[in-house]
Structures are given as C-alpha cells and as structure tokens.
Amino acid sequence: MNPLTRRRITNVALNTAGILVFLFAVFPVYWMVATAFKSNNQIFTTDFIPFPTEPTLDHVSRVFDKGVAGNSIWVYLKNSVIVAVSAVVIGAVFSLLAATAVARFRFKGRVPFLILLLVAQMVPAEALLIPLFLNLQRLGLYDQLFGLIVVNVGMTLPFGIWMLRTFVAAVPKELEEAAWIDGASRFTTFWKVLFPLVAPGLVATSIFSFITTWNEFIYAFTLMKDSTSYTMPVAVQYFFGQRGTDWGGIMATSTLMTIPVIGFFLLVQRRMVSGLVAGAVKG
C-alpha cells in the first residue's frame, strides 16, 4: 500500500470514529429534546422515530399550565433561579476574599487550609445531610429557600476558593505593586487593579457554582417540604410518583432544566481555554 492511500484510510477511520463518538455523546441529549416535542403517539411506540414528524408544543405548555405536584413549572424555575443566583452571589464574595488571602499572602495555616479545601470535596452529601437537616430544623430554616441557599454556599465554597485561587495567582504582582507605588490604598488596589483582572476568573468560578447549585438534588429534596419550594430537579423527580409516567412532560421539564446549563457550560469552556490575562504585563 502506498503511503498516501494509507494516510487516506487512516483519516477516514479517524473521522468515522469521531462521528461515532459525537453521536454517542449527543444522541441521549437529542433524544430528550426530541421526545419533549413528540406527540404521545410517537412517544409510546416500539418503533424508532428519529424526528418529531408531528411536532407539538403540548408537553411544554402543559408543564407550564398544569405543571406537576400542583404547581406550574414557573414556580420551580423561579425557586431554582433564586437559590442558584443567591448562592452564587454570596459565594462569589466570600470566595474572592479567601482566594485573595491564599494566593497573595503567606501565612501560618495556609497549607492546612488548602488541604481542607481538597478534603471538603470528598465528603459525601448524604453524610452532611443528616446533621444539616436537624440543624436547619432547630434554626427554623427547614423548608425555607434561605436555608437551602446557605447550604449550597457551603457546598460550593471550597471548590470556588480552590479554583479562584489560581486566577488570583495568575494576576502579576507587579501590577499591584505599581499601584501601591503610585500611592493607591490597599482597597483601591484591590478594586481597581486586581478585581478587573480577576473578574473573568470570577465569572468562570461563579458559573461552575451556578451549575452545581442548579443541578443539586438531594439537599433540595430533603430540606424542602412544601411543593411550592421545590427546585427543578425535585420537580422532575416528582413526575415518577404519578400513575403512568408522563414522558412528554418529564422530557419537556428536563429540557428546560438542561438548556441553561449547556449554554453556560460552553461559555465557561471558552473562558478556560483562552489564556486569561496573558500579556497584561510586558517587560
């Protein structure tokens, strides 16, 4: 076989493999979206119907009008947004402070703190859930969105600090030193020099926290009692409690829950790839 043919064959093989991987990765997601727009005739069939040839918005409008567990999906969407956004904002402030401390100062207890951040990611949610459930009950925060927000801040903070630390460390110290020399106060230096440069990193970290909180199921499932305080993942799970699962409705809800995450995900990925503040200080 001459080298050119051989290379061509390799290329075809590689591209075929690439397409197969793409299909394997995307098909289940596509299938969720497609099912959300199929008529019930096309959903409950043993045949393979690749496209919703009789597309319908029935399922989408049903989950908004009638909803599940007695409430429209709006209620759960609203709760999910409130919890995720509040947890992210609170978490961003605290993680930025802590990340600055760890990345910019050398102090006693720094390495133990960093190890604590790593170990924290290992603790299983089910372990913390039991004491947290009792503590929130005692504090009167059980079945309160605020309680769930606080819990989510605690869960996302260790990784948030860990991730943001590298972004703060990536900002050249010379910039801050230049500001100090020019007589800027510590606060001005932080606000006018460090913050704008860390902002992209803060956005990336916040998006990660947002996704984690948005996806979080077990805390919301256990700590929220009234159906009006359910978040999206809890509402989705509720579909299975009914007789005869409403697959069109559940797929419409799952799609609504998934789309923002996929969007955010693609956003963070680009941020991560582009070298953050490369070239801010030259020479």
Binding site: V21, V29, M32, F217, S254, T258, L266, Q269
Partner: peptide, 18 residues
Amino acid sequence: VGCMAAWAVPPVAVGVIW
C-alpha cells in the same frame, strides 16, 4: 462540543434520559 453537551447534563436529567 458534543462531549460538552453530555458533560453538562444535570445528574437528575441523566437519570431521566437513561
């Protein structure tokens, strides 16, 4: 991009889809 889509799906939705 295909991989990202799979990666991004919330765990509860992963359960539902499968």
